[in-house]
Lab assay of single mutants.
Amino acid sequence: NKEKKVFISLVGSRGLGCSISSGPIQKPGIFISHVKPGSLSAEVGLEIGDQIVEVNGVDFSNLDHKEAVNVLKSSRSLTISIVAAAGRE
Protein backbone atom coordinates (compact mmCIF):
# COMPACT_ATOMS: atom_id res chain seq x y z
CA ASN A 1 0.00 0.00 0.00
CA LYS A 2 1.21 3.44 -0.88
CA GLU A 3 2.06 5.91 1.80
CA LYS A 4 1.00 9.49 1.29
CA LYS A 5 1.75 12.66 3.19
CA VAL A 6 -0.74 15.39 3.97
CA PHE A 7 -0.07 18.77 5.52
CA ILE A 8 -2.60 20.42 7.79
CA SER A 9 -2.38 23.84 9.40
CA LEU A 10 -4.93 24.44 12.12
CA VAL A 11 -6.19 27.96 11.67
CA GLY A 12 -8.22 29.72 14.32
CA SER A 13 -10.52 27.43 16.23
CA ARG A 14 -10.93 24.86 13.48
CA GLY A 15 -9.99 21.44 14.68
CA LEU A 16 -8.82 18.50 12.61
CA GLY A 17 -12.33 17.17 12.23
CA CYS A 18 -11.46 13.51 12.48
CA SER A 19 -11.48 10.80 15.11
CA ILE A 20 -8.91 8.07 15.52
CA SER A 21 -9.01 4.60 17.00
CA SER A 22 -6.54 1.86 17.76
CA GLY A 23 -6.54 -1.12 15.45
CA PRO A 24 -7.34 -4.67 16.57
CA ILE A 25 -4.65 -6.86 18.15
CA GLN A 26 -3.89 -8.53 14.81
CA LYS A 27 -3.56 -5.16 13.10
CA PRO A 28 -2.00 -2.73 15.56
CA GLY A 29 -1.74 0.92 14.73
CA ILE A 30 -3.80 4.09 14.71
CA PHE A 31 -6.61 4.40 12.19
CA ILE A 32 -9.03 7.13 11.20
CA SER A 33 -12.47 6.14 12.45
CA HIS A 34 -14.49 9.23 11.53
CA VAL A 35 -14.10 12.24 9.25
CA LYS A 36 -16.40 15.23 9.60
CA PRO A 37 -17.69 16.43 6.22
CA GLY A 38 -16.25 19.80 5.26
CA SER A 39 -13.50 19.57 7.89
CA LEU A 40 -9.77 20.12 7.38
CA SER A 41 -9.28 16.35 7.40
CA ALA A 42 -11.86 15.92 4.65
CA GLU A 43 -10.30 18.73 2.61
CA VAL A 44 -6.87 17.05 2.54
CA GLY A 45 -8.45 13.72 1.60
CA LEU A 46 -8.27 11.73 4.81
CA GLU A 47 -10.76 8.87 4.84
CA ILE A 48 -12.14 6.36 7.30
CA GLY A 49 -9.84 3.35 7.44
CA ASP A 50 -6.67 5.26 6.61
CA GLN A 51 -3.80 4.27 8.88
CA ILE A 52 -1.73 7.06 10.41
CA VAL A 53 1.89 5.91 10.34
CA GLU A 54 3.67 9.10 11.33
CA VAL A 55 2.88 12.62 12.51
CA ASN A 56 5.57 15.33 12.62
CA GLY A 57 8.27 12.67 12.68
CA VAL A 58 6.68 10.63 15.48
CA ASP A 59 6.24 6.96 14.59
CA PHE A 60 2.62 5.95 15.27
CA SER A 61 3.07 2.18 14.89
CA ASN A 62 3.52 1.57 18.62
CA LEU A 63 1.58 4.45 20.15
CA ASP A 64 -1.57 3.86 22.13
CA HIS A 65 -4.69 5.92 21.48
CA LYS A 66 -4.00 8.48 24.20
CA GLU A 67 -0.41 9.11 23.07
CA ALA A 68 -1.57 9.47 19.47
CA VAL A 69 -4.18 12.06 20.43
CA ASN A 70 -1.54 14.00 22.37
CA VAL A 71 0.76 14.12 19.35
CA LEU A 72 -2.07 15.30 17.09
CA LYS A 73 -2.95 18.04 19.58
CA SER A 74 0.66 19.07 20.23
CA SER A 75 1.08 21.26 17.17
CA ARG A 76 -0.94 23.64 15.03
CA SER A 77 0.95 22.45 11.99
CA LEU A 78 0.83 18.76 11.19
CA THR A 79 2.60 16.61 8.65
CA ILE A 80 0.72 13.32 8.59
CA SER A 81 1.87 10.19 6.78
CA ILE A 82 -0.91 7.74 6.07
CA VAL A 83 -1.44 4.44 4.33
CA ALA A 84 -4.73 4.83 2.53
CA ALA A 85 -7.46 2.32 3.36
CA ALA A 86 -5.11 0.07 5.37
CA GLY A 87 -7.86 -0.45 7.93
CA ARG A 88 -10.45 -1.53 5.38
CA GLU A 89 -8.63 -4.70 4.31
Rank of each mutant, 00 (worst) to 15 (best):
V58I: 13
I32W: 02
I8T: 08
K66L: 11
A84P: 15
D59E: 08
K27A: 09
S19N: 10
G23F: 04
D50S: 03
S33G: 05
G23D: 11
R88W: 09
V55Q: 01
P24F: 07
Q51V: 02
G23Q: 06
C18N: 00
L46Q: 01
E89H: 12
D50T: 00
I32K: 01
K27L: 06
G15D: 13
A85Y: 06
I80Q: 03
S81D: 07
G29C: 03
V35N: 00
N62G: 13
F60Q: 02
I52F: 02
I25G: 13
S41W: 02
G29Y: 04
I80C: 08
E54N: 14
I48G: 05
G49I: 01
I48N: 09
G38K: 12
I82F: 13
C18T: 04
I32E: 01
G15W: 07
E89S: 11
H65R: 11
I32D: 02
I80V: 09
P28Q: 09
G29M: 06
P28H: 08
K2L: 07
L16P: 03
V58L: 09
G23L: 05
K36H: 11
A84Q: 15
L46E: 04
G17E: 04
I82T: 12
A86Y: 10
I30Y: 11
H34P: 01
A86S: 14
K36G: 07
S21F: 08
R14A: 10
A86R: 13
S13M: 07
R76H: 12
I80N: 03
G17V: 00
A84F: 04
A86H: 13
I25A: 14
V83G: 08
H34S: 12
L46D: 02
E54L: 03
G38D: 11
I52P: 01
K5F: 05
F7R: 09
S75F: 15
E43R: 09
G38V: 03
K4A: 03
K36Y: 09
G87S: 13
E89F: 12
G17T: 01
N70H: 15
K36D: 11
K4Q: 05
V83H: 11
I82M: 08
C18Q: 02
S77T: 15
F31I: 03
S22V: 11
A85C: 10
S13P: 12
T79Q: 13
G12S: 05
G49A: 03
I8M: 15
I82C: 15
K66F: 09
G45N: 05
K66N: 13
V6Y: 15
K66A: 14
G45F: 00
G15A: 10
S9Y: 07
K27V: 05
K4H: 07
S33I: 04
R14E: 14
I82E: 05
S19D: 10
I30F: 08
C18W: 04
E89V: 12
I20E: 00
G49H: 02
S22Y: 08
I20P: 00
S39L: 00
G15E: 14
E47D: 07
S81Q: 09
S41H: 02
L46I: 12
A85T: 09
T79P: 03
G23N: 09
K27Q: 10
S74Y: 11
I32R: 02
S39D: 03
V6I: 11
I52R: 00
S75Y: 13
K5S: 08
A42N: 09
R76N: 12
E43S: 11
S22Q: 12
K5A: 05
H34T: 08
V83W: 10
T79I: 07
L40A: 15
D50E: 03
F7V: 14
